[in-house]
Design a protein around this nucleic acid. Structure first.
Lengths: 396, 396
DNA sequence: ACCGGTCGTGAATCGGGCA
DNA sequence: TTGCCCGATTCACGACCGG
């Protein structure tokens, strides 16, 4: 077991090696032996080793917030190529492989139980996942008497497309936010600050945030990504700003590239990171050491950068602005097409988007269907772009 | 047991009473006795009674899509009031009460199993829920060997605010879309149509749709809402348009106010509704009878590239579109190959299909020869896929 | 410095038909 | 059941490069 030290954020690089866990020689005699409990909290440290073993060494009821990004248990069976035949660099790391759902469930229950013990009475837990694992995680934490407060949808601005055209674009991940128990009602939640940061309306459960790319993405000397699933700092910032206070202790049992630690430091929170892979831990330590705490005044929720929302023509049909079966015409009534229930247009037997059919009728290579097509309302032609504006106003 | 009838959509009001289920006197002797299996599918009917008992009377592998909106198991502990002290009309119906998670899980596994039996091999299942129940539903269906294709987030345009200011506004619900098994890959998914309806980009997993209000919301004589959780027709429309075809059989085991049936009728699908509450069933029947099917052109199944007839390249040679001995080139004239009389290409001494030779010239593992190769016609390059389209048009 | 075109890439459970 | 092969399939960003 290595030396464990406590230190302030921003001090010299420290990674504590502590390998007395499941794979070590020391026999585990049920509940933690006094000697194995740390005498103080290893604040702003990364503990190297088995996550559960290290959790068992932390004192009970000692952390304020937990953010956990566990393995998703993706079950990939074959290689995936893009339409240009380039290979998708998928998550195929050993740490994401489980023999069965049952194995994954056992793993999930074990770490959730260990985490729950170190949570203060009014602490809350965040877990992120995808449809591969989030249902199992959610059921497990409910079984362990956590109390779900919200599920939060991280809507990705730039998700990977579905290359085979066999499903909807998997454009989001899900976070579960839960308190330690149904009775713990005095958890931290900065309702007013979030509302103020969100144009004075309540912060919703769906967050639109870009994935981690560019400068923010950690790369090794060879320019390869250090970690396959590095989370964006904007996501962690909103999590910590909403559910923790400056000076709080934030625990991340699957520390990875250290996004939680970097954001905690920037926002004046303390962190405890648990990580099994020394390569990840080293990169995270360097990243956190390079991060600068922000001034108090700048610790506010970042404004949501958003281009004008794309509106599917289907939404106009769904919203009743345009009826299925109705006829669209151009401004001079030279061309017409029929609206289909699925949000496409029919020109005889040809079916396509408002843009494609608009182009086709005119014999042009392209056409903006929003400004080209009109419907008759009370004897006058109304451009469908007016309806788009209404739908946009709803979603703003 | 009441009379069960089959009838076309739009006929006189029919609700079939069938109460031989769990609460009835007839003993259940394991697998369904022949006499209890319906001799035909009760199309466009609402079967009144216990959902599982009625499912067991349907023939195996008989439905194309399932949409299920099961009880959410909301765990409300106290009445909720708005800031002005008015009372929120929350879901507190008996059908939403379960003694424990374990009871809810048993219920979930029972109906999911019964549903799975009546699904055709390539049928898919949709289940909608919130954070109260969706994790348990998701884990259960994975345990039963359903294969999750997507989780879809219904982002509500106008969700109920969080009156206490203690959580994020719960602004979405989650739908799980799953196939019957991982092996069933030929499920219905109208990729092309959805893309055309969405600005010619893939439809994402997050859908922005208003909740059901106004005219669409069913009210009783006293003006009270008939059902506490009526789903918007726009939601069901997108579900059915994406994953079913006209004429398909859509099963809804928790029929409620009949949104699934009303949308199915409008879109030219058949439905089977199971509902335990006669008040809901009666309201749903009236609603569906009043619904009008849309015109054929607006609901006909969209064309799919995958389903188009296969054309041998040899047909282009035989049809005189491309001559034996002629030279094919790629769009930038970097590569060329010679057409042989037998419909293969020659690249020096190498002979192979248009795809194989196309891949070979580029050094790629694969290539779509139809879009890769061109011939010169009147000084301009013409893609051979245009000739394929002509041959297809001829044979249609 | 700016602009436009090209290229790389991200937590992915991503065929079907015929022999 | 296996194997082969046809042939269908990508969006938003950021980096980089050439003019």
């Amino acid at each position: 077991m290595g030396t464990l030290r406590t230190g302030a954020a921003g001090a010299a690089s420290r990674i504590s090696v502590s390998r007395t866990g499941r794979s070590a020689s020391a026999p585990r005699t049920g509940l933690k032996a006094p000697s194995s409990v740390l005498p103080f909290l290893p604040l702003n440290e990364i503990l190297l080793g088995d996550c559960i073993a290290n959790l068992e060494k932390l004192p009970a009821e000692s952390v304020d917030v937990v953010f956990a990004d566990p393995p998703y248990n993706l079950q990939l069976e074959q290689a995936l190529t893009r339409p240009d035949h380039s290979l998708v660099d998928a998550v195929d790391d050993d740490w994401d492989k489980f023999a069965s759902f049952s194995d994954y469930d056992a793993f999930t229950r074990a770490w959730l139980s260990a985490v729950r013990r170190v949570m203060k009475k009014n602490a809350t837990l965040w877990v992120i996942g995808s449809y591969h694992n989030i249902f199992r995680v959610g059921a497990a934490l409910q079984d362990l008497d956590f109390w779900v407060l919200n599920d939060i949808v991280w809507r990705k601005a730039n998700p990977m497309p579905n290359f085979r055209g066999r499903r909807f674009t998997n454009a989001h991940e899900t976070m579960i936010w839960a308190s330690k128990s149904a009775e713990a009602k005095n958890y931290t939640f900065h309702y007013e600050a979030l509302k103020a940061a969100n144009e004075d309306v309540q912060m919703r459960s769906d967050w639109f945030i870009p994935i981690c790319t560019g400068e923010e993405r950690l790369k090794d000397e060879a320019g390869r990504k250090v970690h396959p699933t590095q989370k964006p700092e904007a996501l962690l910032a909103r999590v910590l700003l909403s559910s923790s206070n400056p000076g709080d202790v934030v625990l991340d049992p699957f520390f990875g590239s250290g996004t939680t630690g970097a954001v905690a430091k920037k926002l004046g929170r303390n962190f405890i990171g648990l990580e099994r892979d020394p390569v990840y831990a080293k990169a995270a330590r360097a990243r956190i050491d390079a991060a600068e705490p922000l001034s108090d005044v700048s610790i506010a929720a970042p404004p949501e950068k958003r281009a004008e929302a794309r509106v599917p023509f289907l939404s106009l049909v769904e919203g009743g602005h345009v009826a299925a079966g109705e006829t669209l015409v151009d401004e001079r009534r030279r061309f017409k097409a029929t609206v289909r229930a699925d949000g496409t247009l029919a020109l005889g037997a040809i079916i396509g988007s408002i843009h494609k059919i608009g182009a086709l009728t005119q014999g042009l290579p392209a056409c903006n269907g929003w400004t080209f097509w009109h419907v008759e309302r009370q004897g006058k032609l109304v451009c469908i772009d007016e309806f788009r504006a209404k739908v946009r106003a709803l979603s703003a």
